[in-house]
Design a protein around this nucleic acid. Sequence first.
RNA 1: GGCGCAUUCGUCUAGGGGUUUAGGACGCUGCCCUCUCAAGGCAGAGAUCACCGGUUCGAAUCCGGUAUGCGCUACCA
Length: 443
Amino acid sequence: NWLFARHTGGAFILRIEDTDQARKVEGAVEVILESLQWLGMDWDEGPVYQSHRLDMYREYGEKLVSEGKAYYCYCSSERLDAMRQEQIRLKQPPGYDRHCRDLGHGKTGSPAAPVIRFKSPLEGKTVITDLIRGEVVFENSTLDDFVLLKSDGYPTYHLANIVDDHDMKISHVMRAEEWLSSTPRHVLLYAAFGWQPPRFAHLPMILGPDKSKLSKRHGATSINEYRDSGYLPEAMINFLSLLGWSLDDKTEIMTCEQIIKNFTIERVSKTAAVFNLAKLEWMNGVYIRNLSPQEFSVRCLPFVRRALPDAVIDEGYMQRIAPLVQERAKVLSEVPALVDFFFSDKLDYNSLLLCGKLDKGQAAEILTRSIHALEDIREWRAGDMEAGIRPLAEGLGLKAGPFFGVLRVAVTGRAASPPLFETMEVLGRERCMARLKAALQKL
RNA sequence: GGCGCAUUCGUCUAGGGGUUUAGGACGCUGCCCUCUCAAGGCAGAGAUCACCGGUUCGAAUCCGGUAUGCGCUACCA
């Protein structure tokens, strides 16, 4: 909806459809607003809360009742439940049996607050024209008398949506495919009010790995969780835009401006898309690598600070570290684990890791000779260090790989790290020498 | 059960009668690069275009049916 509005120059209006009191969740609206803001999806009007306009929905509901197009229903939930059970037992299509349809006003002794139901036509067809799926035909006989206004005074989605879309002059209803089978009700409602319906476009759904509608049970489904995991909003937008839409047969990495410029309903596909986390991770990595080193550093800062609360994290120091891990991170949240040895001198490794495939004697020799060579280094620079150390490997008849490996573990505490000498340069002479000597002690 | 929608590599997709021995991307495998890990480069495996029938000189592309999947079937959205 946002891409479409931006592409066409229309208005993107944010509306909060909070008409279900029973399922109301504290803070849920804030999550939605935060998510949209984080993604950069700005809105031109709103947010409009449906819960603030209950009087209007009631008026429209009662208007239909007075015109004979809707009616009060006094059936208890117990009766409705029993009816449904019976229908299922008899393999009948479940649906309201229209018990109150011809009751007339006030002709009931039931004390329960009534709901308002729509009088669906008993015969005929309703045709909807969908911008993505074409003409879809529904038999009116398959539609039951659905509820418009609940007994608690709140409207159902069907009523509120139609009243609001008309009131707010909505031109295009673009929603997930799960709404397609409700659309004939909406078309019928527009007709009952005598209003021109908007255009409909039912978008392909987003699926979980099991190919069912993506939901909470599939794990992270709140955009904010991706933010907190260190996905970049620009990567998120790019990835999401490609779920059910494509520019052509090749282009995948696109700026938001490019996507807006090229987004059309014609290129939206009909088939649901499985959310492919591995591809999102790859794409996020692409975006991380495309960041300037400074920008990357700045974005890492909160993640490193949160994960390493005991460390004092200086921005200047971080700026020197960040470039060493920029092309190694797929998400920002993994950066702390990649850089923690820069902030703590307590390295946790055993001599087995230190030696690698070499024996203790060789490892000790490597450390001793390296320490000696490094003491002669005047400028603590990666290039100078490498020039001083690399020849030592040859002297011991070893390849650079295993030789450097010992030093790597001694300096970083792990077998995989950013390039050794760049890392040592950032770490500084004092700490490196101390770590090398500590490693020798360990042997 | 009823109604609806969909069906191209494991996944995201291109392609909408001949340009297709079905293209790209993720992932996977191998090689190269290389101080490790990444990144990058190259190569490869992977789709009888769900199935059956029809139309046509010719169908992944058009039509019909079947199957499968998914969605809806609430005083949920």
